[in-house]
Amino acid sequence: MIDVQRLRVLRAVAEHGSFNRAAAALRLTPSAVSQHVAVLERSLGAQVVARSTRGVTLTQAGRIMVQAAESVTAELAHAQQQVDRLGTGRTQLTVATFTSGGRFLLPGALARLTAAHPDTVLHVREGEPEDSLALVRQGAVDLALAYHFDGPLPGQVNQNSGVEWTALLKDPLHVVLPVSHRLAGRAVLDIAEVAAEPWVLGCLKTEAYLRRYAERAGFSPEMRGTTTDYFFARSLVAAGMGISLVPSIALAPELAGVCTVPIKEPVPIRHIGAATLSRRRNHPQLTTLIHALQEQAAAVDDTLPSRREGRSWRSRV
């Protein structure tokens, strides 16, 4: 019989990359973590981690067991929810979201959900996509509103992970300039035209994406500032610190002193979607919430600057 606690320890080792860091996260000693892993290996008859001076990595058997650990954890969390419902008669639903997506998509969708299922108890928590998607896999949250740029989905979301991705919205990024900028009146611009400009950005992931995008355009952007808030980044643009790259849904509310200009093809896009456990796809409240998010995304899509006009637009000074 495989011990659930040992699976939990192995998952922590995989997440943190060493016995010491896993021990700190679990509030155990490194020796206790090592013993749990050793006993698990003996019970399986297979090595689950490869040890080296640089830390530990999972073997193929270890990866199988970590995936099993996530499934077991998710099932136990779901069972706890069902038990809780026996006592209260109310369904608990936890949603994780990133800030700008939650601001524009969640309120309307949650209003539709509570209208359809008034006895549902809702919890919302903010988090970065990779963290929220991990919580979905573990069963700690029921749905994660997340995003990714080009490339694969974050957080090991694939056909083997047990997590289902529902695409909601393509969110194109725009260049934000001071209204006095020489390119402020342009209907569209090539990203290479602003290669020499300093940048201030509202998200670390946007910075990483801009660097990849700029590399393809043949330049390396100069960073003057990175914040965790797109409105603050636009405020710094208005103050003359540089220019910015901002997703469409984060361009509201309007801000005096800045101008937004679309980027010519290939347009950088942030792909927004909802992640849930595949085996819970028929959960009534989750089904209602996903449909509500799709309706809300369609409504938001019609209001984006790129949909309203095929030209640049300025905030009133």
Results as ranks from 00 to 15, higher is better:
T97M: 05
T114G: 10
Y209Q: 12
L183F: 15
S31H: 03
L255H: 07
E164Q: 15
R307P: 05
R216S: 14
P198W: 07
D3T: 07
A25F: 01
F19P: 02
L236C: 14
T53C: 12
G225H: 06
V13T: 07
R8N: 13
A69S: 13
V300G: 02
L236P: 13
H16N: 08
S235K: 04
E295A: 10
L204D: 15
R314C: 13
G242V: 09
L26A: 09
A134V: 02
V33A: 04
R54I: 15
S312Y: 05
V163S: 07
G225C: 08
D302T: 14
A187C: 10
S278M: 04
D3Y: 03
V37I: 12
G101K: 02
L122R: 00
P30F: 11
A239V: 14
L10E: 12
G108S: 09
L169S: 12
L40K: 00
R54G: 15
L255V: 09
A140E: 06
G108Q: 03
V49H: 04
E70H: 03
S34C: 09
S52G: 11
L210I: 11
V317A: 09
A217C: 13
V136F: 06
F232S: 15
Q285S: 09
S312G: 14
V66T: 14
H271R: 02
E254D: 12
V258F: 06
L40F: 02
K170T: 15
S31I: 06
V39T: 11
L277I: 01
L44M: 10
R112N: 08
F98R: 01
R137M: 04
D150M: 05
R280I: 05
A195H: 11
G139T: 01
E265R: 01
R90V: 14
R90D: 14
S132D: 08
T303P: 04
H291E: 09
P305A: 07
R316H: 12
L210D: 13
A292P: 01
R85I: 03
R51C: 05
A50S: 14
V175H: 03
L177D: 11
L122Q: 03
R137W: 03
G240N: 09
L135W: 02
G45D: 12
L10V: 11
Y147S: 06
E295Q: 06
V9N: 05
H148Y: 02
P253A: 01
V56F: 02
R216W: 13
Q35C: 08
T59W: 05
A77P: 13
L76Y: 07
H36D: 15
A24L: 12
A196Q: 09
A256R: 00
E130P: 13
D119G: 05
R270Q: 12
Q296E: 09
L113C: 08
T91D: 09
L110W: 01
L28F: 08
A298P: 01
L189W: 05
A79V: 09
A196S: 12
Q67F: 06
F231S: 14
R270S: 13
G45L: 05
Q47T: 14
A77L: 01
Q285K: 00
V176L: 07
E41H: 06
